[in-house]
Amino acid sequence: MNDLLTRDMLVKWAPLIVLIVLVLMFALIEPRFFSVRNFARIGISSAPALMVAIGVTFIIIMGSIDLSMEGTVSVCAVAFAFCFLALGGTLWSAAWLALPLALVVGAVIGLINGLVHVKLKIPSFMASLAMGFVGTGFALLLTGGDRVRIEDEAFRSLLTVRWFNFPIMCYVALAFLLIAWFIQTRTTLGRNFYAVGGGEELAHASGLNVNRVRVLGFMLAGVFYAVGALLAVGRIGIAETATGSNFMFVSITSVVVGGTALWGGIGGVFNTLIGVLIVNVIGNGMVVVGLPGYVQDGVLGLLVIIAVVLSTDRKSVDFVK
């Protein structure tokens, strides 16, 4: 049999093929879809979601799940906005400190999340969902329901300044994607994620401190949520409790559509990139080809199921939980 067409190869490349087919399909229906300007728009809507999805990718590779992203993104966005304004309100002053501070806030929330999960022995599904609610509530407490506007031209250049037709935020997202790839493939921590996801008992028996890996994983995810929060604020210039809304659906869907298996051990950050692009191409494409609003949600659901069917190797598992 031809080596290029083995099952493994097909499964590996299926998400990319799905993406290419979708792009061609939308381009055929509406040629205006296939333009650099529109790709830039898809890039803008994908960048924050990609960061959040990369964060949760690490967790899913470990075979856990993290549903705290909406709360974490809101808290990071609001904390960033308040500090940014308090420290001067422009990147050319001490206010740039708000950027690393937001990442620290994300890491701390992830740390708490991980400790609750590991130390109190609460399933990650429940622990992180609860932490998400705590985060949303906390963000509401901070803002009192108001929106915080970030007007600084330098910070907003994330959106307004373009290199080669794409705004800076796309390149920032790309840079963090490379960092995530580096962590995944070139560090012990990254390889440990796969070890835990592939067989926790085995990993434990071979002397790996599984709990430590888990906590570090949640912290790392928190940092990426914070980057997502910064890009989300950069995109609309507003930090509010609702900044985190919808990130849960988009990020989990993207990870799964990209071919990372929910049972852990399989996939990676480049799968997530493809997954995020698939979800955003579908979202953008449906409006561009002019599907009525009430059909869109249904079509999105169907396309997601089809994409998962095509892009995950279901043969390798005996049961689905």
């Binding site: 205006r32 728009r41 989300a232 609702a242 919808n246 561009v288």
Partner: peptide, 16 residues
């Protein structure tokens, strides 16, 4: 009623 969704819908409108 959502700012981020509106942002994405408007950019898709601009394409179309």
């Amino acid at each position: 009623w959502d700012t981020q969704k509106a942002n994405q819908v408007m950019s898709s409108f601009l394409t179309r």
